[in-house]
């Protein structure tokens, strides 16, 4: 089976990995790097459970080939909390009750991180636009929106 060798930076660490050419970034992260926080809910771009930040932008890891990640900087959910200190969005998700089964949570949190970086004080419509690609089947989304608004306020006042 054909292989590719890619060098990429994941959560601040630069690594070189040789893996199957047809493997997606999602399975490179999960199988080759053991980063299981990035989830597979559909493998076709529809659910957003696999969302990671690539060069700062949310992408579906299930639609990026391993070779396409060459030279890129990836942040996964495991890379968000620094030294045990949770990211304000992670704290807000906990506090606002935005987590039920949690399978959507890593992807949602990362989409929200990207949003707040571009739009520190987003409107509700902007939140909805930014999170359209992240399905959640448990919460009905209300508490997720509340969490993002709470985190925006917190970051704003920090």
């Amino acid at each position: 089976m054909s292989q590719v060798t890619v060098t990429l930076t994941v959560n601040g660490q630069t690594q070189t990995i040789t893996t199957d050419a047809h493997k997606t970034l999602l399975y490179l992260l999960r199988d080759d790097l053991g980063l299981y926080g990035t989830k597979d809910g559909c493998s076709e771009g529809e659910c957003g459970a696999c969302t990671v930040l690539m060069d700062g932008r949310p992408v579906n890891a299930c639609l990026v080939l391993a070779g396409q990640a060459q030279g890129r900087t990836i942040i996964t959910i495991e890379g968000l909390a620094g030294d045990g200190e949770l990211h304000p969005l992670q704290r807000a998700f906990i506090r606002s009750g935005a987590v039920q089964c949690g399978f959507c949570t890593p992807g949602l949190v990362l989409s929200a991180v990207a949003l707040l970086e571009r739009q520190p004080d987003p409107t509700e419509a902007q939140i909805r636009q930014a999170l359209t690609g992240n399905l959640c089947r448990c919460t009905g989304y209300t508490q997720i929106i509340a969490a993002i608004q709470a985190a925006a306020r917190e970051v704003d006042h920090a």
């Binding site: 771009g45 932008r57 949310p58 992408v59 579906n60 690609g133």
Partner: peptide, 9 residues
């Protein structure tokens, strides 16, 4: 088109 993830790719 799609969500932010699709639009970024």
């Amino acid at each position: 088109i799609g969500g932010a993830q699709t639009q970024n790719r």
